[in-house]
C-alpha cells in the first residue's frame, strides 16, 4: 500500500464507473488507519509445487493464458484448473519448440525440488 500510494495518492473520478471509483477511494484511508486488507486468494498451487511468476512472465507467457480474460471480469475467478496435468500440457508444447534448451520443462525437479 505504501509503495503504490507513494505516487497514487489521488483517485481520479471516473464518471462512467462510479462503483469502481468508490471501491478505489475506499482503499485510500487504509494506509492512514493501519487496518488490514484481506485478499481472498483465487489462484493457488499446493505447497509442494515451486512456481515462479518470473520465468513465466519473462518467458513470454501472457497473463490471459493462465488467468483468463481478467480485464473483462468484474470479480476475479479462476478459469484454469491449475492441475499438474494442465501445467504440463503447456510445458510440453513449449518444449517441443526447442527440445534441447527447454528439456527442463518436463523435468520433475523443476517444480518439485
Amino acid at each position: 500500500m505504501a509503495r503504490c500510494q507513494g505516487c497514487h495518492r489521488f483517485v481520479k473520478e471516473d464518471k462512467e464507473k462510479p462503483a469502481v471509483t468508490a471501491e478505489i477511494k475506499a482503499l485510500l484511508p487504509i494506509l492512514a488507519e493501519g487496518s488490514v486488507i484481506e485478499w481472498k486468494r483465487v489462484h493457488r498451487v499446493p505447497d509442494l509445487v515451486y512456481f515462479t511468476h518470473e520465468r513465466h512472465v519473462l518467458g513470454g507467457v501472457g497473463c490471459q493464458e493462465c488467468h483468463g480474460d481478467v480485464d473483462q471480469m468484474e470479480v476475479l475467478r479462476q478459469v484454469s484448473p491449475l492441475t499438474m496435468g494442465w501445467c504440463l500440457q503447456c510445458h510440453k508444447a513449449k518444449q517441443a519448440q526447442r527440445p534441447a534448451e527447454l528439456a527442463k520443462l518436463s523435468d520433475c525437479l523443476t517444480c518439485h525440488k
Binding site: 500500500m1 509503495r3 487504509i30 494506509l31 493501519g34 484481506e38 485478499w39 481472498k40 486468494r41 479462476q78
Partner: peptide
C-alpha cells in the same frame, strides 16, 4: 477438493 479452504493473502501496508 483441492480448492476447499479459502486462503487469505494479507500484504504489508508498509513493506
Amino acid at each position: 477438493s483441492p480448492q476447499a479452504a479459502t486462503q487469505k493473502v494479507i500484504p504489508f501496508l508498509i513493506p
